[in-house]
Design a binder for these strands. Structure first.
Lengths: 346, 346
DNA sequence: TATTAGCACTCGTTGTTGGTGAGTGCTAAT
DNA sequence: ATTAGCACTCACCAACAACGAGTGCTAATA
């Protein structure tokens, strides 16, 4: 064991073993490996090496007389330094480009990307909805409701509409609300939401005395309308059912817990958040994710960006035993494509 | 077999059998039935009756030496004329009332009802979104986008906002769009959408010559904006994962097909539509639904109404072997409660 | 010294076998 | 019309053996 933790031969062996295991899902033994792996070694020698690999925790034998299976550590080493990425098939790329490029509505675009990811990989595809931090306000409308409530309509980013209901301390007439809206529109239109909030604070301070009551009310209502924004993000998911076909998910109970986690959203969201400020594709293998429900799963995720700024994460969720060499480039390319297409729509 | 298809005794026997089977999921044999069912009959007699019931297709033996299990026909007879409904537990009602009554936003209300249904039954709860036929238009806004497109914002029913993008044949300035909106608002505000469409047609005919080009454009745009409406309905679903715990769903392949159907939505939607104009609770047992994926499932559904008009359907999806005597009243009450609560919010 | 052939051993998988028990249909007695 | 009795069926289970893939270890080999 000279210097490096694993010599060349052991690494190559591990690589072959993992590849083989990923391919057919059976514990792989010394015989098979001796025949299959290009390097000419007898089963006995391979057994020796495998014993070492097992001691170091890279592989593991389900029982005495079975072959070996990669451990989490084994997979980790594999994806980090052994893996040879398969460049994406041209036809896949062009079909992706066609599917994604031909859509002109953000929502449908994201949905389509999610479905592409799941369809191509036969696993679950996930796309985190864009973080709406750099949304720019285009216009705001107020409509009176009963019981001192006001319906606020925000048009942002040229084409998206958000609406919420805020509680006020008195009743406003349609006319008053119109005035308030006009005031806010001239004040804030075209600005990014985060700047708008600052602007509001300034405005409030600086002109507190000079302005009339209605303006003060306007500011206060705007505060409510604009800060209530972040409700924690969300994501799209497609192809969950694909996961039911993997025998490693045979355990119905585990599967159920996984699906529950999908519905709960929180855990998945936290996980994706972790990739938000990574650059490039990131991989969580099995328990690495820190979520028990993802025990037998790996997540391959990549941030996607618009105008050079990361605004979301997309990826694939599947069994630990997945074809990383194909999934990684796919996730990578999809992230790029999605970002680029969103960019065009700005 | 005098006159009626099934004499008193046979019916009672079937009732007992179904109840027993629903309770513990095992094929039930003559011994058990003789002991359990209050009527004093020897196993042998019961066997004779059961043979008749089997000939008539109400029950069925999984194999020679097993007890009997209800068939679809058996369940059907059971729910139609044998079932004794268990009145809903007071505490359940009040908790329902509390959960549902305390919500003041339609969307969250529907979501909560869905979850209630699934939580209480430990099956899947489903609530079809209200048919938006009698929505009344409150206000309409137009905003110019690039490429001859216009963002239309519809405020309907006092507090709901819909928005869509329409394609126009030329570019309109914000001012023009404002005029158009004003015109349409005075023309249509407060009207129900379906009336609005008629109004538009009339307006177009009657004043074709007299009005200026902008008004003509306005009408045309309104046509686009208002008719594109119906995209076929949707529904909320909760507790799908509950279904994974029933051993009759043990078959992963079937389960997958079922979940796929949930995602596809279409089939489920069609099924629910069938209950839209039924009055009271309706039940689809197994294949009766006409959808293969619902083979092993029953659907208990009831329409719910606002202002005396049916606007949607809610229900529960679970294994054929479900406690109909409890589920039916629950679905019934929930539908009433939901309708009433929605009514208040109008 | 590194590799390999040989060998005894482990252990999951598969198939056989026989016993058990719940349940049946039929027949004859009540 | 009901029921006791009986032979029969069949899923379920446990025990058991044969098989085979794979192992670790030891001794021979290049």
């Amino acid at each position: 064991m000279s210097g490096t933790l694993l010599n060349e031969r052991a690494q190559l062996l591990l690589k072959n073993l993992v590849e083989r295991y990923i391919r057919d899902g059976q514990p792989v033994g010394s015989r098979t490996l001796s025949r299959e792996s290009s390097m000419e070694l007898s089963p006995a020698t391979i057994r020796n090496v495998m014993a070492d690999l097992e001691d170091l925790g890279f592989i593991h034998a389900p029982h005495t007389s079975a072959g070996r299976v990669p451990t989490i550590r084994g997979y980790r080493l594999f994806v980090d330094s052994l893996l040879t990425i398969k460049p994406l098939n041209k036809s896949v790329i062009s079909s992706l480009q066609q599917q994604i490029g031909s859509i002109d509505e953000p929502d449908r675009l994201l949905a389509s990307a999610t479905r592409q990811l799941s369809d191509i990989t036969s696993m679950a595809g996930v796309v985190m909805l864009p973080k709406r931090e750099q949304v720019s306000l285009r216009q705001v409308e107020f409509l009176p409701l009963s019981h001192n409530r006001v319906l606020v309509i925000l048009v942002v980013n040229e084409r998206e509409v958000q609406n919420r209901i805020i509680q006020t301390h008195r009743n406003y007439s349609a006319g008053e609300l119109q005035q308030i809206a006009n005031y806010l529109n001239t004040l804030c239109a075209g600005r990014e939401l985060r700047h708008v909030r600052q602007t509001l604070l300034q405005e409030m301070d600086e002109a507190r005395s000079s302005m009339n009551q209605l303006m003060a009310d306007a500011i206060q209502m705007a505060q409510q309308a604009f800060t209530e924004d972040e409700q924690g993000g969300d994501f799209l998911l497609a192809g969950q059912t694909n996961l039911m076909s993997y025998e490693e998910m045979g355990n119905l109970d585990k599967l159920r817990k996984l699906f529950d986690a999908f519905n709960r959203k929180r855990d998945i969201l936290n996980l994706l958040d972790q990739s938000l400020h990574a650059n490039g594709v990131q991989i969580f293998i099995g328990e690495e994710s820190g979520y028990e429900v993802l025990d037998e799963c790996s997540v391959v995720a990549s941030p996607y960006q618009v105008e050079g700024e990361v605004i979301g994460v997309l990826g694939v969720i599947g069994p630990t035993r997945m074809a990383y060499d194909r999934v990684i480039p796919l996730v990578d390319v999809t992230a790029q494509l999605l970002g680029a297409t969103l960019n065009q729509m700005k």
